[in-house]
Amino acid sequence: MTPTTHTVHTARPETAAGTGAARRRLWSAIKLHRFYYYLIIPGMLYFIIFDYIPMFGVIIAFKDISPFEGVRAIFTSEWVGFKHFVRFWNSYYFWNVMRNTLLISGYKLLFGFPASLLLALLLNEVKHTGFKRIVQTISYLPHFISTVVVAGLVMMVLSTDSGMINAIVVAFGGEPIHFLGDPKYFRSILVLSHVWQTIGWGTILYLAAMTGIDPGLYEAARIDGASRLRQAWHITLPGITPIIAILLILSIGGLLNAGFEKVLLLYSPSVYSVADIIDTYVYREGLNKLNYSFATAVGVFKNILAMILILGANYVAKKMNQTGIW
């Protein structure tokens, strides 16, 4: 009993002095970090000018305007509330389009992400530096080929008449398959061509991170007689988990972007049911109707979902003792 009152009694003046001291301590901490704030200022200014000032444009989603009406119309036009959002949600194809978007980009993440990691591990095991460099350099070639060209290549390779794949199918006595017109294959084609295009480029960060691993660790493992696979598993992989975690979090934020241009270049009505994504849907809506507010509303909707996804991923990463974004 007495001890408690005692603590309460003495605690009071202490907290009062504590806040003052905390404030002073914060102030001196800020002063101590002066140099770092100087470093931060130009970058923060950039984000405020080029990202925060234009952000008022989001209100277009709640209005009914066309871009050519100019900036004044953004403020003067009347509010229409959630009209455009509701229109999107009530669309006959809303669920179809959402499903396609998440499936296509989900598969891309599921296959593309580990593929790069695996290739980086394989490259890391190559002892001959010359060979390693050549393979590395070749592997990122596809990254520089623009989407238009990739789409053209895909059409050529898969053509029922002159395509290589169908030549193989026919050689084994099969009927030529119309891949791009068949809902069974369309998503796989998108995912495969995505992996082909990004796998090499994706290794760069991993390989850079691997340079930070202490060679002494491998040395010790070798003396212990650990095989190369075990070394990769127990030394290389743990050494680059921070970068894997952050890349994964950032990629999850992009789950609602399923690669607009390539889908647009490759799809057709026969595969709409598996290929129509949010962005192509909005594109078709906007094409006939100059519907800028609708497009913005769908964009806002996508952003909010993306934020929830990233927050979730960051939370999970922290739970698993990984560095999150914050």
């Binding site: 059409m155 050529m156 053509s159 029922t160 030529p176 119309h178 791009l180 017109g181 270049l265 490759l266 057709s268 009505p269 026969s270 595969v271």
Partner: peptide, 8 residues
């Protein structure tokens, strides 16, 4: 066969 998809 490819009439209703993209072809060259």
């Amino acid at each position: 066969k490819e009439s209703f998809a993209k072809f060259d």
